[in-house]
Amino acid sequence: MKTTVALSPAPGSDFALTEVELTEPRADEILVKIAATGLCHTDLSVRDTLPAEMFPRVFGHEGAGVVEQVGAEVEGISVGDHVVLSFRACRVCGQCHRQGVGYCESTVLLNYLGTRMDGSTTYQHDGAPLFGSFFGQSSFAQHAIAYADNAVVVDKAHDLRRIGPFGCGFQTGAGTVLNVLQPGSDDALVVYGAGAVGLAALAAAHGAGVGTLVAVDMMDSRLEAAAGYGAAVVNPAELDGASVVEKVKELTGGGASHALDTTGVAAVIRDGVSALRPRGELAVLGLGAPELTLDAVDVMMNGKVLRGSVEGDSDPQEMVPRLLALAAAGRFDVDRLISTYPFAEIGAAIADSASGAAVKPVLTW
């Protein structure tokens, strides 16, 4: 069938709306008519770093839409179901069972290579294969092929134009708070990088009644959004000679019990660890510098923990419904973070995200 996608023809290129061919869903696949897709920094960072031989390509991994076809082997999903699309996992390997689906042994093959496991592609353009299958969906498209393992059936009362980010960005931030760090009413959580993921973390922490919240960012618009969740805010450019570590310790009564970093910047992570109280824990969520230097004496003598987290250690089949329920109950207020754009305005959405004019752009058909 023919469909329209936001095509990335080369590394770092602008997206262009292009008509392409989409294959029929196989026995283990579903066809989803996409209503909207969240724009995530991962779409852009991967676009900018993959080699040229892995293009042209269709990105998008926060899709939401309506199921139009269901393969013969698919269970639990029916034509007409509304779904949020998330990341893929095999769900049968040892890592999926022991560590969780975010740490699947086949993560790269299922989510990043741009093909099915057999090397075929779901999209074609001008008779040539077109890389897709990004997070098992490539939902910068009017129609996408997805799978039972990464399609979460949701109540039809939810607005499909606003729930796609629950499949990745919102899930990652909230999951890190609720599943990984689990701070309580007597704790202090610091978020470094108040973009969509960081603000989702603050929204979850605010809803869970965490005692002290702090947000560190360079953009005043993001800090204003963080303050809306009751967070004290720190702009490193406005500290008049004081350090971020000193300011965070002041705001948290001696140091943070919990922290998370979305920036991937080595210096920020180092400051985050330094600003922890004894036995504090910092979770790293953003990809960035491959190396960083820490004060090993400080880490050891104070029992500090630095750890990574993929998708907030979430299983989308459980976490997406959980977060939607929390949102409906007013305990995960993230709708305020969303700005919608027609897909034809994807360039403006990217620019607004970079400038801070929009926190979480969502592209709609």
Rank of each mutant, 00 (worst) to 15 (best):
D217V: 11
K249H: 07
T252N: 12
A256Y: 07
D220H: 05
M218G: 09
A227K: 12
L239Y: 10
K249S: 11
N235C: 02
T252G: 08
K249G: 11
K247L: 05
T252L: 02
A215D: 13
L251H: 04
N235W: 03
P236Y: 01
V244T: 15
A227H: 11
H258Y: 14
A227R: 11
N235T: 01
A231G: 08
G230P: 04
G230W: 01
K247D: 02
D240M: 08
S221Y: 02
G241P: 08
D240S: 11
V216I: 14
R222Q: 13
G228D: 07
T252S: 13
G255M: 08
Y229V: 07
L251P: 07
M218W: 01
D220L: 03
S243G: 13
V216K: 06
G230N: 09
A242Q: 14
V248G: 05
A215F: 13
G228R: 07
D220N: 14
S221H: 03
V233T: 15
A225V: 10
G228C: 01
G230L: 04
D220M: 01
T252F: 09
G230Q: 00
S257Q: 07
A256P: 06
S257K: 09
V244I: 10
A226M: 05
V245A: 06
M219L: 15
V248I: 15
G253I: 06
N235A: 01
N235M: 00
G255K: 02
A232G: 05
V245Q: 01
V248D: 03
Y229K: 07
A242M: 12
M218D: 04
A231Q: 00
R222T: 04
E250R: 13
L223F: 09
M218R: 14
G228T: 14
D240H: 15
N235H: 00
P236M: 06
E238L: 06
S257E: 07
V233M: 01
G241F: 01
D240L: 12
V248H: 04
S221T: 10
L239E: 06
V234C: 00
V245Y: 02
S243E: 03
L223A: 11
M218E: 04
S257C: 10
A231N: 04
K249Y: 05
K247Y: 02
K249T: 15
V216Y: 05
V234R: 00
T252D: 08
A256M: 08
E238I: 00
K247G: 03
A226H: 03
V233F: 00
T252R: 05
D217R: 13
D217C: 10
E224S: 14
Y229W: 00
H258S: 13
M219Q: 15
A215N: 11
V216R: 05
T252H: 09
A227W: 09
S221P: 00
A242W: 04
V216G: 06
V244G: 03
A226G: 04
A215S: 11
E246A: 15
A242L: 14
P236K: 06
A242G: 07
A226L: 07
H258F: 15
D240Y: 06
S243C: 06
L239R: 13
A226N: 05
Y229G: 12
S257D: 13
L239M: 12
M219P: 02
V248Y: 03
G254R: 04
K249A: 15
E224N: 14
A237P: 00
V234I: 14
E238R: 13
A227M: 08
G255C: 04
